[in-house]
Design a protein around this nucleic acid. Sequence first.
DNA 1: CGTAGTCTTGAACCGCGTCAAGCTTGGTGG
DNA 2: CCACCAAGCTTGACGCGGTTCAAGACTACG
Lengths: 240, 240
Amino acid sequence: MRGGMRCGDCPIRYRAVCAQCEGDEQALLEQMKFYRSYEAGQPIVWEGDRMDFVASVVTGVATLTRTLEDGRTQMVGLLQPSDFIGRPGRDTAACNATTATDVVLCCFRRGSFQQLMERTPHLSHRLLEMTMDELDAAREWMLLLGRKTARERIASFIAIIARRQAALTKRRPAGRIALELPLTREAMATYLGLTIETVSRQMTALRRDGVIEIAGKRGVTLTDYARLIEESGGSSGAAA
Amino acid sequence: MRGGMRCGDCPIRYRAVCAQCEGDEQALLEQMKFYRSYEAGQPIVWEGDRMDFVASVVTGVATLTRTLEDGRTQMVGLLQPSDFIGRPGRDTAACNATTATDVVLCCFRRGSFQQLMERTPHLSHRLLEMTMDELDAAREWMLLLGRKTARERIASFIAIIARRQAALTKRRPAGRIALELPLTREAMATYLGLTIETVSRQMTALRRDGVIEIAGKRGVTLTDYARLIEESGGSSGAAA
DNA sequence: CGTAGTCTTGAACCGCGTCAAGCTTGGTGG
DNA sequence: CCACCAAGCTTGACGCGGTTCAAGACTACG
C-alpha cells in the first residue's frame, strides 16, 4: 500500500474528495499524495496541535473527539473510508483524531492542497458536498444526543453500521444481517453520550428482547432490520 | 427593507455568503436577490418540504429543529444574521426552520444560485468556509448535549449569546455584560436538550448564586463574564 | 379586572451514572 | 498444558440529576 498504489486502483476513488477529478487534476493529486498507516488505537492528531496535512480515510475507521477540561469526552465524528480529515485554511486541529481500527490515510500537504483547490473547482465542489453531508450527519447525531433514550441510541448506532455495510454491497438493508462493530464498548459510549456500563446493559437488553444476537466482543447479528429501526426511535432510519 | 435595499448598505455585506464577491459577481447577486420578512414564531420551511430557494439571514434569529416520530424535538441550528439557510443541490429541507424573532431573509432562487456558484469561485469558497464553521459549531454543541450538566448547558448558552453580542461591537467579552436572550425558555430547552422546567430552575439557581441577574422574561446581565465561563464547564469558551 | 401565555416552583419518580465486583478472552511464561 | 495476568466486558446495588406531573405567579393585553 505505502506509496505504491495507483489512484485507479483506489477503493475510494469515486467517493472521496477526489471523486470528480479526472485527467490533469487527477494526475496532480496522484503526484502530491502520500500514504500513512496507523495501528488501531493510535492518535492521528491532538486538539490544538499544528496540522500541516489533510487526508482521506482509505481503509479502517477513525474517530474525532472533543473533551472538557475535567476529562469528560464526547465523540463528534466517526470517519469511515472516503471521509475527509482536516480543514484547508486552518493550521491547528479542532478535535482529537484517533484510529479505532488499523487505518490507512491518503494525505496531502495542506498548502499544496489549498493551492490545488483554488485551481480545480471539482475539488472544492466535492469538498463542499462532503462537508454538508457531515453537517447533516452531525445534526442527526445531535437529535440522538439531545433526545433519545439509551436503548434508542444503541439501536440507532447499530442501524448506522448496518446501513454503511449495506451501502458497500450496494443493497438496501433488510431482514437478518450479521455485522462487526468497528468500536469497543468504550468508544461506543463516547460516541453515544453514555457510560460503558449503560452501553453494556442495553446491548444485553436488546439481546434478551430478541432484537440482536451477540457473538464475541464485536460480533452482532440483527434478527430483523425493521425491528431494529423501530427500536431506534425513528428519523435516524432516513438520513446519514 | 423589502426589495429596496442596496447591497452596499446591507448589514451583513461582509460576513454573509456574498462577502467575497465584488464587481460583476456582486452585481449579479444584487439582481437576483429578493427579500422575505417573517414575524416571530413563523415557520420558514418544514422538514421534507420542497425548498426552491436559499437565503441569508439579514436580521433576526431563526432556528433549525429535527423531531422524532413521537414529537420529541431537538434544535440543531441557531441562525443569526449572516448565517446561510438551505442547501444548493438539494430540493427538500432536512430540518424545520422557524423564526424566533422577526426575521428578514435575503433569498435567491436555488437554481440560479447554483448556476452562479459554478461560475464564481468566491461564492462557493465562502460557502465552504461557512459550512465548515457550522460543522465546528455543531460539534461543540454535541459535546454540550452529550456531556454537560444542565447548569453548564445554561451557562454555555448565555456565554454564546454574550460572545455573539460582543463580536458585533468588536470587542472581547469581559466583566459585567447586559444582554437580551433571543429565545423563549421553551426554545432554550429545545436548544439545550432539556425540559423547560429544568431551564427555569437552573436560571434561578445561577441567579441565586450571583452569576447572573434576571430582568423580565428575556433580560439577563452577567455579573462577571469570566465567572460564567467557569460555570460553563470549559472548552466552549474557545470556539464557536 | 379577567384571561392567556409564559415562566417559576414543588413533589415524586425513574433512567442513567457511579462504584464495586465478577466474568471472558487472549496472551505469556513456566 | 495449565497458571497467571491484563484488557475488555458484564452485572448488581445504590444514588442523583433531570423529567414528569401539577400548581401557582407574573405579565401583557383585552
